[in-house]
Every structure is written in C-alpha cells, then in structure tokens.
Simulated scan of single mutants.
Amino acid sequence: MDIPPLAGRIAALSLGALPLSYVLNQVSALSQPLWVALMSALILGLLFVAVYSLARGEINYDPLYAVFAVFAFTSMVDLIIALQEDGYVVGFMEFYTKEGDPYLRTAHGIFICYWDGTVHYLLYLAMAGAIRRRKGYRNLGLYWLGSLVMSILVFLPGNILGKYSSELRPAFLLAIPYMLVPCWAGMKVFQQPRVPTCCTPEAVQQEQRKGLLQRPADLAFVLYLSLAAIFTFFRGLVVLECPTDACFEYIYQYEPYLRDPVAYPKVQMLTYLFYVLPFYVLAIYALVFPGCSWLPDWALVFAGAIGQAQFSHMGASTHLRTAFTYRVPEDAWACFFTCNLLYALGPHLLAYRCLRRPSFFLPPPPPGGAPDPHKKKL
C-alpha cells in the first residue's frame, strides 16, 4: 500500500493546539460547563473558516480535506489531554477535562485520546497530503473509518450508561456532528475507485480453482477466524453475566476489567458480539468461496476498528486509573496479552493478505476469458 506524503500545512496548523489550549486553560470564565461547550464550538467553527480560506482549492477538489484538517487539530488536543492525565504535561487542558468531557479522565478515555493523537493524526496528515497531490487514499480512509466508528460506538454509549452518566455536560452535544461526519465521510471514501490490480483473467481463474486445502495461508485464516469468533462469542456471554463456571472464572481471574462499572468494556464486548462476530463468519465464507469482492474493503474497515478497540481495551485493563480490583491480575498477564494481541493482529494480517493477493476475491471472469478489446466487431 502506497502511503502518500504528509500534509505539512495541516501539521503546522494542528500544532497551534498547544499554545491555544494553554491560554484557554488560564481563562477563569471557562470554569463553567456551558462556556466550555460554547468556546469549543466557536474554536472549531473558526478553525474550519481558516482551513477553507487557506486551502480552498483542495476543499473544492475533495471536501474531506477540511474534515481531516479540523480532525487533525482535535487529535492534537486529544494527545495533550492524554499526556496531561498521565502527568507528562501540566497546565493545558484541565478546564476541558473537568468541565467539558470529564469521562476523558477515565482509563478508556485516556487511551482513546492516545490512539486519536497518534494513529488518527498520522492518517489525517497522510490523507490530506494525498488530496493535496490529487492522489487516492481509499485504503487509508477505510482503515480510518473503521477505527473512528468503533471509537464512537463504544465511547458515547459508555458515557451514557456508565457510572459517569450523571456528569454529562453541554460539550457532549458536540458529539452529534462527530457522529454524522463519519457517515458522510464513509460514503465519500467508498465511492473512490479501487486501487487497480495487475491480476490477469487467467491468474484469477487459476487462483479461484484452488480448494481451501491448496491455499494453506487461507486455511490458517479460516482456523484463526473460527477461534476468534468463539472467543468473541464467549466474551459476549461473559459480559451478559452467563452463569456458567467458565464465564465466572474468566471474568474474575483473567479479565476483571469486564466488570468495571464505567461500562466501556461491556459495551466493547457487545459491539464485538453484534458486529465483529458476523464479520468473522462472513469472512470465513469469503475465504472458502471465490469472488467475494467485498472482503478486501471490509477487512480494512474491521482491521481499523479492532485495532483501535484492542488498544483502548488492553490499555485500560492495566492503567492506574482503573481500580485495582478491575485490573488484570499479575499471574494472568501472559494469557491476557497473548489472547488480546492475537485478536488485534489477525484482522490486520487478513487485510494485508487481501490487498497483496486479491485474485481469489475478484469477480470471476466471463466464460471463455476476457474479450479482446482490439478485436473488431463484425
């Protein structure tokens, strides 16, 4: 996958979050939740106007350039929040985490901020750089889309259902455009043309004639996805308080974080159960039967989603902000990290396999081979 150059102007603009957050933190008026929400909305609006005035040509070419520019700025803010909550910086975003989004001070919120401030930030710069050079960024966009949607699906319901539900502030309303923008952005990304492949019709036919036993890598993926589906279903039963001994033992001895009243781990496991589990089943089907051209795209989407989810889940399970009772026991660390790392790594390897060797997933060529474009019609 060709990663486009980064967008230098957006990177410079996003760094303005450092002095701005420091100055705003000194304003005493921002100790009121309503003022925090209004100021945040005003800053985002002014930022959009600034981006539009500086990069009108890029926005006319692809309006997602403005989205990536604004989101890159908010990613830098999230990185500052995470560093502040872990004690690496002081005096920047205390006003916002206290009166704006107090749930960002949870372990889950901190790791969401770390992911947004690093992985999402680099993706925004890379995609904006691609737009500036009039290049495609479909693969990067699909990965980003899955990651962002998973973050929203877990974080927002967790805020409403968890123990911090009584601390919702007016700034929570800013989540409404944050939910709508990915829907629009996702449609724009899916509409981009796919990266052309060099697979000939003969190569496609030859690959699609092979059975599963003749494709050992795909057989390994089928076995992995089967085990991952079982693990997904099992953890779904655990958070649904299944009374079996296996579920009871697992939640107390291996992943007690699933009992944390913040609700994020429970929502995460239910999201896996209702969205990731069906994808695993469909992916197994696509690895057995040829011509499922949807798998490469959706493998990228789910790789981004599971990567973000596992990073936040594993980090929060061991972070000091999580009560000691709910952290992973020391004698279970090896099992916990091995299972969860494999759970995160597998979808990325599947996406890589689909992108590197897509012949099996391409639509089968018509009978008799592809028509010769140079042959004259009678």
Rank of each mutant, 00 (worst) to 15 (best):
D2L: 12
I3L: 14
I3R: 08
P4Q: 08
A12G: 08
A12W: 06
S14Q: 02
A17D: 00
L18Y: 09
L18A: 11
P19Q: 06
P19D: 03
S21L: 15
V23Q: 06
V23G: 09
L30R: 02
S40F: 12
I43L: 09
L47E: 00
V49I: 11
S53T: 13
S53M: 11
S53N: 14
R56E: 12
G57H: 12
E58I: 05
I59N: 01
A66N: 06
F68A: 04
T74F: 10
S75T: 08
I80N: 02
I80T: 03
Y88N: 06
E99W: 15
Y103T: 13
T106R: 15
H108Y: 13
G109P: 05
F111N: 02
C113D: 14
D116H: 08
Y121T: 03
L122C: 12
L125V: 07
L125K: 00
I131L: 02
Y137G: 01
R138I: 03
N139Q: 13
W144P: 00
G146P: 00
S151A: 14
N159M: 14
G162Y: 05
K163T: 10
Y164L: 14
E167Y: 07
L168N: 10
L174M: 12
I176V: 15
L180M: 13
L180K: 07
V181T: 09
P182Y: 02
C183D: 02
A185S: 10
G186I: 02
V189Y: 02
P201K: 09
E202T: 12
A203P: 06
E207S: 12
G211W: 04
Q214H: 07
D218S: 15
D218Y: 08
L219M: 13
L219E: 00
A220W: 03
F221K: 01
V222N: 05
V222H: 03
L223Q: 10
L223S: 13
S226P: 01
L227G: 10
F233H: 08
F234E: 05
G236Y: 01
V238W: 00
V239W: 00
V239Y: 00
C242R: 06
A246R: 06
E249F: 11
Y252H: 15
P256E: 05
A263P: 00
Y264A: 03
Q268S: 14
Y272P: 00
V276T: 13
V281C: 09
L282A: 14
I284E: 06
Y285F: 09
L287Q: 03
P290M: 02
C292W: 13
W294V: 05
A303K: 01
A305C: 07
A305T: 05
Q310V: 14
T322A: 04
F324P: 05
A334R: 12
C335I: 15
C335F: 09
T338R: 07
C339D: 10
A344H: 06
G346D: 08
L350I: 14
R357I: 13
F360A: 01
P364E: 12
P364Q: 13
P366D: 09
G368S: 10
A370Y: 11
P371L: 15
H374G: 11
